[in-house]
């Protein structure tokens, strides 16, 4: 039997400048399909820069279920368009894994990631299902490294040759960032 969605975690959220709208499968598929348009976005989010067909992406993407996997469209309050997508995936051991792409280039360098993720973390850390958040980052993804540092995540290690891009065959290092609930609440 399918488990019921988590009503608290499925709520729409907002930050000062953005609405964070929970997405169903179709919405998440359409939003994340944009990730595949840019090879570097693909590499940084999936650690594999291989071009995908729509069918491949359909099969590959984590499906939002309102219980363990959540996608949020990031929409400026000042406009109509969606400028990015945030994904958070919970496991049964209290850890949530994070990913975010701001695909609207004109919003780069404007702290979208910081503001949207702060709002999501504030909300999700209120759940007793989450004790820790984690992000794994491609070592060359300077923007993401900056964002994790600014949020106060701790870099807990570097996995040398921690992953391999299937498309190019190149190994690359992966950084692990983590934030504990107790540390976030103390901020």
């Amino acid at each position: 039997m399918r488990k019921k969605p988590d009503q608290f975690l499925s709520q729409p959220l907002a930050s000062e400048r953005f609405e964070l709208i929970p997405l169903d499968f179709k919405g998440a598929y359409n939003a994340t399909w944009l990730w595949t348009a840019n090879q570097q976005d693909l590499l940084y989010t999936t650690f594999n820069s291989s071009p995908r067909t729509k069918w491949q992406w359909f099969r590959e993407m984590d499906r939002p279920d309102g219980r363990t996997t959540f996608y949020h469209a990031i929409r400026p309050k000042s406009g109509k368009g969606v400028i990015g997508t945030h994904r958070i995936v919970l496991n049964s051991k209290g850890t949530a894994k994070l990913a975010c792409v701001v695909h609207a280039r004109k919003w780069w360098g404007k702290d979208v990631f910081f503001e949207a993720r702060s709002a999501i973390m504030d909300h999700f850390f209120q759940s007793d299902r989450i004790e820790r958040m984690q992000g794994n980052v491609h070592v060359e993804n300077q923007a993401s490294i900056y964002n994790y540092m600014k949020l106060g995540f701790r870099c807990v290690g570097e996995f040398r040759k921690g992953s391999r891009d299937k498309h190019t065959g190149n190994y690359f290092n992966v950084l692990a960032f983590e934030m504990l609930k107790v540390d976030w609440m103390a901020k």
Partner: peptide, 24 residues
């Protein structure tokens, strides 16, 4: 100090120090 200027900062520090920065 945003994500884009942070990349400029890393590049400027590498130039000033004459070596690539370690990830840590």
């Amino acid at each position: 100090w945003d994500s884009l200027s942070h990349m400029k900062l890393v590049a400027a520090l590498e130039e000033a120090l004459g070596r690539p920065l370690e990830i840590m």
